[in-house]
Design a protein around this nucleic acid. Structure first.
Lengths: 227, 227
DNA sequence: ATTATCTATAGATCTATAGATAATGC
DNA sequence: ATTATCTATAGATCTATAGATAATGC
């Protein structure tokens, strides 16, 4: 053995970061499968190949672990959407369209969450489950409130004659479609006999913004646009 | 006291039915708040004002309790949708439209789930949470598979030139909008500052089918309808 | 010296059942 | 007699912490 073998010595900072990452990945994965309440700290520790006490060493309690899992990717994902909306804002020259705004927002999310990284997919699936609960709301308000308002502002400007109420209900339907997709339940595969598959975010991206723009225009774009 | 007071004697069948109802209502309500895994049998017993042992007496275990909660309203809700699709089938004279089929399906659900009955609302909210999980899929396959295929069949006939894949992705978005609405998270109220509210299923019904029909036509109705 | 990791365990649940009691049924 | 309800508890699990050990840091 003349060659010096790769040193196995890791700095404490490295060790810490690696183990933190392992625990967060494990929690993210398990939470995405059975939800926050369906997972124990013991499950997480086992999945991360360590001990429950170490999970408690790095995270105060189970709630703090969820907070950390959520926060790890929240800012990155929000910033990407803000950047996409900024770019679209410049590009549209003060005249945003419904489909343009939705493409900027939704396509960015589908790229971020569906880009081949299992961690991001698990995160999205966990988020989609939290998004349909009351208790999960605080997480979205805390991390995503501003970027959501940016999207809604663009939609309002694209549909200046439309009642606010319709815009918000439309937004509700848009989010539903996104969340259903990010949930990756596999039901689409079963129902369609393979013609469509839950994991195929490229197809979702191809259809989603156009679908949602068609929907928004259907309830906002015709003669009766109030009430 | 000349009048005979209302007899407090209840038959065993009555007692049984009342307590079963109380337990199912309690479980339905609590499951809708924090999900199946976020609720203990003790919580359910407390909410139903009885003891855990009685919950076990009527239901083998926690899983069987969820099965019973789900099954109690599943058939009623599925049958109502089937009836609505049957009626539409007759009415359309062999020429279904996308919006007609969606009105039959979605409006029926919004009437069923939003008709002022707390139990039905809680059931819908629980269902919406289960619908975005993998483990919840079996419940939908077991109870709703046929009626979903009926809807998809109508959509296919309304869009004979459209690629199957687009139909199924469209269906995915439709279900997302419905599920997001049934979830009643209250986020709509906060985001809109009161302009729209999660509990207002009458408004949801007013916009949903039209929105979704606009979306389906946007991805299926134009020149490029394959791939 | 400091920090990461592991061992051991207290104390608090939680599920499920056995067995007693109290009501209704014939 | 039969069934609904309650009491008591076993046994399993879960969260969280105290304290020991093993690694890295200067």
């Amino acid at each position: 053995m003349t060659a010096v073998s790769k040193p196995k010595r890791r700095t404490k900072a490295q060790q810490r970061e690696e183990m933190l990452g392992q625990i967060l990945d494990a929690a993210e994965y398990l939470f995405s499968l059975t939800g926050y309440h369906g997972v124990t700290i013991k499950d997480v520790a086992k999945q991360a190949e360590t001990h429950t006490s170490l999970v408690h060493y790095y995270f105060t309690d189970k709630k703090a672990l969820l907070d950390a899992v959520f926060a790890r990717r929240a800012k990155i994902s929000a910033d990407l959407r803000v950047a996409a909306l900024d770019a679209y804002e410049r590009e549209c020259g003060g005249k945003p369209s419904v489909e343009g705004a939705l493409h900027a927002y939704l396509d960015t999310d589908l790229d971020t969450f569906g880009g081949g990284d299992d961690g991001w997919r698990n995160y999205a699936t966990l988020g989609s489950q939290m998004a349909v609960t009351r208790w999960g709301g605080e997480y979205f308000d805390t991390h995503f409130y501003p970027v959501v308002l940016r999207l809604i502002d663009l939609l309002k400007r694209a549909l200046p004659d439309c009642d606010e109420k319709r815009i918000f209900w439309g937004y509700n339907f848009v989010m539903g479609g996104l969340i259903m997709t990010l949930a990756r339940t596999g039901r689409l595969d079963i129902l369609s006999g393979g013609a469509a598959t839950s994991e195929d975010f490229a197809s979702a991206k191809k259809y989603m913004a156009r679908f949602m723009a068609g929907g928004m225009l259907a309830i906002c774009g015709d003669g009766e646009t109030a009430g």
